[in-house]
């Protein structure tokens, strides 16, 4: 699907698009694989409880991996840990993908990059079922 748009690059944008990152084949691979794996990893982190660490905001305590909230010490927060797991995983997979031949990366359907974030919302919303059904 092509777009004839006012989005066509301005001189300044065209100039910036000649930066080394924007023209680097390795960065292209890294960016595409990072962005493809981010929604998948995040959903896995949430559904399978894979936080890199658990933060206890009332006591400022940090536990490695998943840890339950302790009695009398307030709630435990996993979102920071899920985000950290996702980012580290995406960087690792993105870097590993740069070792692959470019023709492998060129076979990835680019539509997945916007479809996966949308599809990821279904299991994430489903995991929040207790909030939808209470009250």
């Amino acid at each position: 699907m092509s777009t004839t748009t006012s989005a066509s690059p301005t001189p300044s944008a065209a100039k910036s698009s000649s930066t080394s990152l924007a023209t680097s084949a390795k960065f292209k691979t890294f960016a595409i694989v990072f962005s493809l794996t981010a929604p998948i990893l995040y959903v896995l982190c949430e559904l399978l409880s894979w936080p890199l660490f658990t933060y206890h905001p009332a006591t400022n305590r940090v536990d490695l991996g998943w840890a339950p909230g302790r009695s009398g010490e307030g709630p435990a927060m996993y979102w920071y840990g899920w985000t950290a797991t996702m980012l580290i995983g995406c960087v690792a997979l993105g870097w590993l993908a740069t070792l692959l031949p470019e023709r492998v990366i060129n076979k990835i359907p680019l539509a997945l990059i916007w479809l996966l974030p949308v599809l990821a919302l279904a299991p994430l919303a489903w995991a929040l079922m207790p909030f939808w059904t209470k009250g």
Partner: peptide
């Protein structure tokens, strides 16, 4: 969840716009 997933797709977003031609 939404903002974290959005964060994750920024590299491709940036790359696509920097290669808008």
């Amino acid at each position: 969840h939404v903002v974290t997933i959005g964060l994750g797709v920024l590299p491709a977003y940036w790359y696509f716009w920097k290669n808008a031609r």
